[in-house]
Design a protein around this nucleic acid. Structure first.
Lengths: 347, 347
DNA sequence: AATCACATTCAAACCGCTTTGGGTGCCACA
DNA sequence: TGTGGCACCCAAAGCGGTTTGAATGTGATT
């Protein structure tokens, strides 16, 4: 009936009075095809709106032409996090540009291993992206064992064998943020961090401690909170710290959303952010959570998650297509941007 | 080499000394197979860890065993919204439970039409979910024309022909929220809404106006804001309205995040939410943005986006598998939950 | 004029499964 | 004793591409 749905290689070949072999070769850019013929084929393909059937290609080539993202549906902690949507958006851009599909598997986190094994044995994807790496993440050795190409968004402290990753320099970012506050004269600086079984949280804490150490200050457990990254947690953490006998005069929050909570706590106490208490956040540049439109509201260490998605996807496609051999690594530096949420220390 | 990767139907059949036909039938539950044989086959499949190759199944059956979600990568407005991640999580659950894959295509929004056409002609998916329906959404007639089964998350005002959808009763929800505020004695109620080319925003506004009309109050343009759903927009909207000569004593915000902005504005002005200004939000129950852990912070109209994802996926699979014939419709009612952000009117 | 390299093209096998259209053997029934 | 029906199983033909191994024609080389 409708041409757009029915036209296939054989049919096209018949119309051109050529063999399917030649048509296939012409379209796929093989050299052993006469230039004139190639043009004729291309023209006909265009005219009849020929789109090769993906299912057939996949079967014939043995490649899935798809990249998988396994999302553990958290029974314990919430991992369907806001960062995810933006990362996906970045990666997806690259996939479609290269003719790859993006496959999401949402699986209960206790069946994650099985999910990866199935992906392998059914051959549904050519590679996977690993999200939210944890301390000693078991997924990495598993994927190595299975021989599935993969790129980790982040790194997994505790894993010694090499693997491909894209990460922001969390440690350096938080070190700089802390130093920046020191330079402003602050001495008591609170850290409102994510849960520290997540790798990024571990590194951020280290960066924070590095900066303290450089000033010869011992880290104070009272000034460090590790919690779910919600507005409420940010609020409670700030609230508690600000109620201490020696309250912090500056806070570093691990995300925009925690920062919003911290700000609320500050304002609840009748203080003004940027004047009475300085706040620095880490800003992932989420599309629906901008840090101010023109002028940044929060001083922040900034690094685009969407860009990370693009880089990771690029890297993975390179691996899948055999262009990359050794595990690549890409460390993105966060930018420190100055907003209105920080100011000099006032006694 | 490794059995898990190599074992295929032919091989399994050989080991069992049966034809591929019979093995296939046995595994797929066809009746014309001896019970004993079936058991023998099942046992062998288990033992050799046989997983049928998805690519081959897809080609042979002509079904893609996949559902597509096309995400327009907004050049104009940001649509990679936070709601998306949770919806996906819900839908994905259903897909994997039914052996379907979830395919995301991230495409620049000016090539969206082409994306759908390709999906059709390449046969990569069996159906699609339409996200973020707009006024007179062009995607609906397009999909009808292409003959791709689809379910809309939301509805598209202006589309007259029937189509399948899952939506929350936005109109009713906002009407109830407004009435609730009236019952508390409030008379000047501000609406902080999303952009009104989005269908849900149109309906929410109508619900709000319905409630006003029922009290014989004419809607005041000054009390209605339509903006991107960000914290900043919520803040500015509230700020502006509260600075009016006759400021509102209650606000309704279209999302948690706008509500946070509104709250900040209230507190910025030295007022207390729930006492000086009441705020009701619409709460999509996003996993990473809970409205309080035990007691709700905000009074809210609540409806789970994740649940909507499950329902939509279920509906679509029903359509794809031919179990559903006429376009189904599912209207979810939002629940009104009382939190601490609302209180009686105080002059 | 025979030979060879090269450029083009094609027939057929293959990817791994489903499904159509028969077989075959056995038992009940007339 | 022939016949029909049933239960069970199989060979082979797809599905729509890619890829291998030849075949053909042509001009250059000897």
């Amino acid at each position: 009936m409708d041409a757009s749905a029915r036209m296939n290689l054989k049919e096209l070949a018949r119309k051109l009075d050529l063999s399917p072999t030649t048509v296939s070769r012409a379209l796929n850019g093989y050299p052993e095809v006469n230039a004139a013929t190639r043009e004729r084929v291309a023209e006909a393909a265009r005219r009849y709106n020929y789109q090769p059937n993906t299912r057939a290609i996949r079967l014939a080539t043995g490649r899935a032409m798809a990249i998988g993202h396994v999302i553990p549906l958290a029974t314990r902690h919430e991992i369907v996090n806001p960062v995810f949507a933006d990362f996906i958006a970045g990666a997806g851009e690259i996939y479609s540009r290269n003719g790859y599909d993006m496959l999401l598997s949402v699986v209960p986190d206790d069946t994650e291993e099985r999910a990866y094994r199935e992906l392998k044995s059914r051959g549904t994807v050519d590679g996977v992206i690993v999200h939210g790496p944890r301390l000693n993440d078991e997924r990495i050795p598993l994927l190595v064992e299975l021989g599935i190409p993969f790129v980790v968004h982040g790194r997994a402290t505790g894993t010694e064998s090499p693997y491909a990753w894209v990460d922001v320099n969390n440690r350096r970012a938080f070190q700089r943020a802390t130093e920046f506050l020191f330079d402003l004269g602050h001495r008591r600086i609170g850290l409102i961090n994510g849960l520290e079984f997540m790798d990024f949280a571990i590194r951020r804490r280290r960066g924070y401690e590095d900066a303290l150490a450089a000033r010869g200050i011992a880290p104070d457990p009272e000034m460090m909170v590790s919690e779910e990254m919600t507005e409420g947690a940010g609020y409670r953490a700030a609230r508690r710290m600000l109620a201490l006998p020696h309250p912090p005069t500056a806070l570093i929050a691990s995300s925009m959303i925690m920062g919003l909570g911290a700000r609320r706590a500050v304002e609840d106490l009748g203080m003004k952010m940027g004047r009475d208490v300085s706040i620095i956040i880490h800003d992932d540049e989420l599309s629906y959570m901008r840090n101010g439109e023109d002028v940044p509201i929060f001083t922040a260490t900034r690094s685009s998650v969407r860009e990370a998605g693009r880089l990771a996807a690029d890297m993975l496609l390179g691996m899948v297509q055999g262009k990359l051999t050794s595990p690549a690594e890409h460390l993105m530096e966060a930018e420190l941007i100055i907003g209105g949420s920080t100011g000099p220390y006032r006694s």
